[in-house]
């Protein structure tokens, strides 16, 4: 790859084109490998596809661009503090709808920071949910008999279940 390249173009699984700066792409191992690959040389017009849908990819790229300067140069405590606040705001956006997609994308793209953040956000959201809400968002079927449920209720009387 020539060092003059500052941004690369990738395709989402929906076929949309996205630009991502080289420094931001370095946050992901698979993207980094792609960078080292020949397909980014100037005379190649093949655009690599990332198996992440457009809506999710927008968010992932937004995260990468924000975190890239810090990841590449290290940052002061005040920057870290600022970034933490940014992360909280970032995760506040329509998370219920695309959080799971972000989780899968972060996992697939080996992005440890985003994966941790998304797991923690999911866990924080779950805290406030009832058992039936949990079943719904994870698409889980209740496979306990009513006797078994009653028994669980008896074992942990302190916990209100629903």
């Amino acid at each position: 790859m020539s060092s003059s390249v500052e941004a690369i173009t990738v395709l989402s699984s929906d076929g949309d084109e996205f630009k991502i700066t080289v420094s931001a792409a370095k946050l992901s191992k698979p993207l980094n490998w792609m960078l080292e690959d020949v397909c980014f040389s100037d005379d190649c017009d093949e655009v690599p596809t990332i198996e992440v849908n457009s809506k999710t990819l927008v968010k992932v790229i937004e995260y990468c661009e924000k975190h890239a300067p810090r990841a590449n140069s290290g940052a002061s405590d005040s920057d870290a503090e600022e970034l933490k606040k940014w992360d909280i705001e970032f995760m506040k956006m329509d998370v219920k709808d695309i959080l799971f997609h972000i989780l899968m994308a972060a996992n697939y793209l080996h992005m440890e920071g985003l994966y941790d953040l998304a797991c923690q956000t999911a866990a924080d959201l779950m805290k406030g949910m009832t058992v039936s809400q949990i079943r719904k968002i994870f698409h889980i079927k209740n496979d306990f008999s009513s006797e078994e449920q009653e028994q669980l209720r008896r074992q942990h009387p302190g916990c209100s279940f629903d």
Binding site: R135, F138, I140, K141, D143, F144, Q149, L152, H156, S160
Partner: peptide
């Protein structure tokens, strides 16, 4: 403890 009741898994 609360989510033990979600499913057997």
């Amino acid at each position: 403890i609360r989510f033990q009741r979600v499913c057997k898994d």
